[in-house]
Design a protein around this nucleic acid. Structure first.
Length: 393
DNA sequence: TCTGGGGTCCTTAATCTA
DNA sequence: TCTGTAGATTAAGGACCC
């Protein structure tokens, strides 16, 4: 028995909690409405105007100029997230956070302690509300996919159960995009095959799907469409990559400026790796040009690293061999292929002296960043337009 | 004046290696 | 020693999710 818990309009709800006088107004959390960026989250009032997550913020402003536009205050949301996860862990240790605002719970065997799943769901909603003043939606079902789907069907502030004997009738009429992993592109490809509903995917010839979507995707999509999902709840998943990327306020042609941005991003990635005790085997450069074309260039390092310097040096090499002709819109740095745990070579032989020196400097930098905030140095701001006050704050 | 930033997972092609 | 092949690994790109 799986529960899925998803907070309602999470960022917007937290901002509203902090500023109750905004109650009833359309709240849009995201980028500055006069700049580049998108909507992170918006309240249900704002959704009535057709505003939604991931929409260009300029478009949101056109649709809802009277909205209250607020910047993202991540620290606040992270704190609330921790609080929520703590509540969930009181019911079972099998809690798998899926993102900042949602989680799966495996509550099989918890009936003795807390009652049937529906009762647990009700208690979770009650306790989260009492302790965070935030509402959430909960789905109860025999597996992850169905639990998440149940949550969506009940939003906001819902509690939805999909019983084993109601799976097909619930699933069949839904549009294909309700299947986790089926987005716009796949939906278009399915539509071209005359497939529009989940039931149609379930009954489609597997061979036909394979020809279009490959082995893994077909297996995934069709199983889910049939309500089958045997993925377990994994409470201790490790991250696969750590990255940082930034879109310039204006597209940039100055390579010096780009390198300065890459230095900052490399530092952020290094810091994040050190914070968790990871080292990256692969360093990846991401570059998006004016025309929104995105290229990535990567290199595998031996030994893996968590050093700003080593990352930056690699990034510079990659950058040098991929200098685009068009103005650059975004730059990103990612460490991937993460290895966890101590560096065996360093443990055995001790790191060379210069490496130790660099490591000391980088640890000192971490402290400076901690004190003045991650964005103490922000080359992106060098090209920022002078901007007035936000409409709101 | 469209289109963020944090990720996951999959596919494909090239290259390396046993 | 030469050649073919299976299987890993690397690199790049893309779809998708919150």
């Amino acid at each position: 028995v799986i529960l899925h818990v998803d907070m309602d309009a999470f960022y917007a709800a937290i901002e509203l909690r902090e500023r109750p006088e905004l109650a009833g107004k359309p709240i849009i959390v995201g980028a500055d409405p006069r700049g580049r960026g998108v909507v992170s989250t918006c309240s249900y009032e704002a959704r009535k105007f057709g505003v939604h997550s991931a929409m260009p913020i300029s478009e949101a402003y056109r649709r809802c100029p009277q909205g209250v536009y607020l910047p993202v205050r991540m620290e606040l949301y992270v704190a609330a997230s921790h609080q929520v996860m703590e509540v969930l862990r009181r019911f079972t240790p099998l809690v798998e956070p899926l993102s900042i605002d949602e989680a799966f719970l495996d509550v099989a065997g918890c009936e003795g302690l807390f009652g049937p799943p529906e009762t647990i769901a009700r208690r979770i909603k009650k306790e989260i509300l009492a302790e965070t003043k935030l509402s959430c939606s909960v789905g109860v079902a025999p597996n992850k996919f169905l639990a998440k789907l149940a949550t969506e069907l009940g939003k906001p502030d819902g509690l939805t159960v999909i019983a084993p004997d109601r799976i097909a009738e619930t699933l069949d009429p839904l549009p294909v995009t309700r299947v986790f992993g089926v987005g716009k592109r796949t939906a278009e490809a399915l539509a071209a095959l005359g497939i529009h509903t989940v039931g149609q995917i379930a009954r489609a010839p597997t061979e036909m799907l394979r020809a279009h979507f490959g082995d893994a995707s077909t297996q995934h999509i069709q199983s889910l469409a049939r309500g089958e999902d045997d993925r377990r709840v994994e409470p201790h998943r490790l991250p696969q990559q750590v990255g940082s990327e930034r879109t310039f306020d204006r597209d940039v042609t100055d390579a010096r400026l780009m390198r300065r941005q890459l230095l900052e991003l490399s530092g952020l990635v290094g810091m994040e790796l050190r914070r968790h005790g990871y080292r990256a085997r692969t360093v990846r450069l991401k570059l998006r040009t004016e025309d929104f074309a995105t290229i990535t260039r990567s290199r595998t390092l031996t030994p893996p690293t968590d050093s700003d310097r080593a990352i930056y040096r690699t990034i510079l090499e990659l950058f040098a061999k991929s200098l685009p002709k068009l103005p650059v819109r975004l730059l990103g740095v990612t460490g991937a292929d993460l290895v966890h745990g101590p560096d065996e070579q360093a443990t055995l032989f001790g790191p060379p002296e210069d490496v130790q020196k660099v490591a000391r400097v980088e640890r000192a930098m971490d402290k400076v960043r901690e004190k003045f905030g991650r964005t103490a140095l922000k080359p992106a701001s060098l090209v920022a337009r002078p901007r007035g006050k936000r409409s709101d704050s």
